[in-house]
Design a protein around this nucleic acid. Sequence first.
DNA 1: ATCGGGCTTTGATCGCCATCAAGATTGCAT
DNA 2: ATGCAATCTTGATGGCGATCAAAGCCCGAT
Lengths: 247, 247
Amino acid sequence: MQTALQPRDITFKQLRQACSNCSLRELCLPNELNAEEMKQVDELIGQGKPIKRGEALYRAGEPFRALYAVRVGFFKTSVVSEDGREQVTGFHMSGELMGMDAISADHYTCDAVALEDSEVCELPFEEMESLSRKIPALQHHFYRVMSREIVRDHGVMLLLGNMKAEERIAAFLLNLSQRFQIRGYSSMSFHLRMTREEIGSYLGLKLETVSRTLSKFQDQGLIKVQNRLIELRDVDGLKQLVNSCQG
Amino acid sequence: MQTALQPRDITFKQLRQACSNCSLRELCLPNELNAEEMKQVDELIGQGKPIKRGEALYRAGEPFRALYAVRVGFFKTSVVSEDGREQVTGFHMSGELMGMDAISADHYTCDAVALEDSEVCELPFEEMESLSRKIPALQHHFYRVMSREIVRDHGVMLLLGNMKAEERIAAFLLNLSQRFQIRGYSSMSFHLRMTREEIGSYLGLKLETVSRTLSKFQDQGLIKVQNRLIELRDVDGLKQLVNSCQG
DNA sequence: ATCGGGCTTTGATCGCCATCAAGATTGCAT
DNA sequence: ATGCAATCTTGATGGCGATCAAAGCCCGAT
């Protein structure tokens, strides 16, 4: 009986901000941390910070202070050119780290905008850096996460450089599907948080092409589209489309 | 007189491998290192390793052990898809680090191939990692270098996603020009180490388009092309081409 | 409930770049 | 020097996706 009440011993604040209690821990942090190390990390990471849909977490040019982990919600990052054109450089869901581009120039080089009401954890970089000198696993973790970002970017380059519109869209849908699955959501049907234009920007296509291609996939029985709700009907078919180009 | 002979006190081996004597030091290493720290770094970095033109420094799938700094020469890195198509992910010249993609999966994800007779320095990663725990500037340096790679990749994504063929080629030439200049070579005329096909792969274009565009630039008086020798004739004109899209 | 604006779909046309093809040039090996 | 393979140039044609255009839909604000 009393066990059910134990959470009372922990303040609400602690509950919200403790990485040790967070279901995303294995996405954000190395899993080799012992209790003491975890406590040190917990102390550094700020209160969860809410960002409303449409708001920017940070903008290009702002001074760099922290990396951000998505706790809840969905973000896009993008570079905006002088003439106003936008290149979306990534979509980011829970457990993913944003802001690593800012380390080199000491200011953010992208805008990070919430595509739904979201919440992020702040990782003050200097403090994390010095803590990671004491915790090898943490240091290695940051190297790994940055490396993974580089690999991901190479994948996008391959997509933009070699693939046709249909292949790009198929790869995009499969990628989203997989990432939802990892987080325990349905991999077979999901809600797109972004507009056709944002998808197009990410994939190097115009919004009309995105729309047309989704319609075509629906006609072919590969997916079902209802505005932003996507249902995958023939995953193998989609994979074949991608493989025809990229393997 | 005798001063001219002082190098004799240093063995040839030391001369070749000492970062402290290397003219590329400010490209490869943080400049805050003191003599003692520099010595520790020197001890880790292997003998310069020659790679003949056409040879691979490493290939996708090989286990990860070290990062490599280009000491002399020119490399391309590329991903090859199952059906044999190649996406060049970067060209790398002296002072630049390769292999950071391999940290996350513990094996290389690209091929790195020398485009001319080259020489690289080997940076055993685990040792560098543990040394960087003792030298904050070194740790920060690796984070910065990886961050810079991410920023660079975002630039390529913008190029592939938004720019037309002429804009891509102009941006490419200006980028090469700038990097040669930093290294003390002429920024106005240089030798392309890669084929039209490799340029095209990097820029998401076919080799014929690369060739045609270079010819067109020559007709417009923007550049002079003689096979792989490029002379920039109107840098501002090239910049205007790029800016018309990207700012 | 109704209105309005942003988002999406679909159609028609156009232009850029891929593709196919044939020579020209380079440079390497003998 | 000679010959061959790889690379590069240039031309002709075609298709994919951009662009222009208009109508429909969804959702949030009042």
